[in-house]
């Protein structure tokens, strides 16, 4: 149950509250230069979501099984050359950025082949944008967040598993899609407006983006509120008097005690 709550919170956080485009500023290039048509923007968003998910799976697998110190695959291979202890300490995380970017490039290649085979008309309308997804910051950012939650935790038991990483990546892509579809819709309307000449093009898009970011700021605190609503409290919150409180405290701690 706790796991499901965790997943739901990660999903909502990645899609709405900490939106990749409007909060973390990744994926701005397609956001500002996005087509003025909603259907093109939606297609681009879907492609990015697809690529992010594949790239996240690849980078999670490689990080967990090869890169971190004590990872199974590198430990097994190093075990042929070094003692078991030294093999367990091999830390390949310095290669992570290089590996991620090549994983992303492979994911994009794979998606390109898939789209070319099964959706040829879509492939033609995408043109050069599909290979350009490799340089989309959002994808590398998702991989980096996953790495931060595996490598950067003090306690190895807290490291993220595949489920959480997948959810973060997929819903990050969903948030990206939401942002650029809204932006494309607004730009369709902007074309009919009388924008001052210096502001036409990128400048007005950025200002509109700022107002959008302001609107999305309204979602702050939704995840902590949801977490409080969904997580059952461990013990009654009511503190009657200092003595009773102490008794409650002692009872709870002695019940759950298991000291290492």
């Amino acid at each position: 149950m706790n796991y499901v709550i965790d997943i739901v919170l990660i999903a909502i956080s990645a899609a709405l509250i900490n939106n990749f485009v409007l909060h973390y500023f990744v994926g701005i290039c397609p956001f500002v230069g996005v087509s003025r048509r909603v259907d093109m923007a939606f297609g681009m968003g879907c492609a990015v979501t697809f690529v992010i998910t594949i790239a996240a799976v690849l980078s999670w697998s490689i990080t967990t099984f090869i890169l971190i110190p004590g990872a199974p695959l590198s430990r097994w291979i190093a075990g042929f050359f070094l003692s078991a202890e030294a093999a367990a300490k091999i830390d390949l995380t310095i290669l992570s950025y290089i590996i991620y970017i090549f994983a992303i490039a492979s994911a994009v290649q794979f998606v390109e082949m898939y789209v070319r085979k099964f959706f040829p008309s879509l492939y033609k309308s995408f043109g050069v944008f599909l290979p350009l997804i490799t340089t989309n910051c959002a994808i590398l950012f998702a991989c980096l967040m996953i790495m931060a939650n595996i490598v950067g935790v003090d306690n190895p038991a807290d490291a993220w598993d595949l489920g959480r990483s997948l959810v973060l990546a997929a819903f990050g892509g969903v948030g990206f899609t939401i942002a650029i579809v809204i932006m494309a819709g607004i730009r369709e309307e902007l074309d009919l407006c009388d924008v001052p000449k210096p502001f036409q093009g990128a400048a007005i898009t950025l200002i509109v983006g700022g107002i959008l970011a302001l609107a999305f700021m309204g979602f702050t605190g939704v995840d902590s509120g949801l977490k409080k609503a969904l997580t059952p409290e461990p013990v009654a919150q009511v503190v009657v008097s200092p003595d009773a409180g102490q008794a409650l405290q002692l009872a709870r701690v002695s019940k759950s005690l298991s000291v290492q």
Binding site: A203, I207, G209
Partner: peptide, 11 residues
């Protein structure tokens, strides 16, 4: 905050 970045840069 993020909105400020967008607005400042646009202006």
């Amino acid at each position: 905050l993020p909105p400020g970045a967008f607005l400042t840069f646009g202006i």
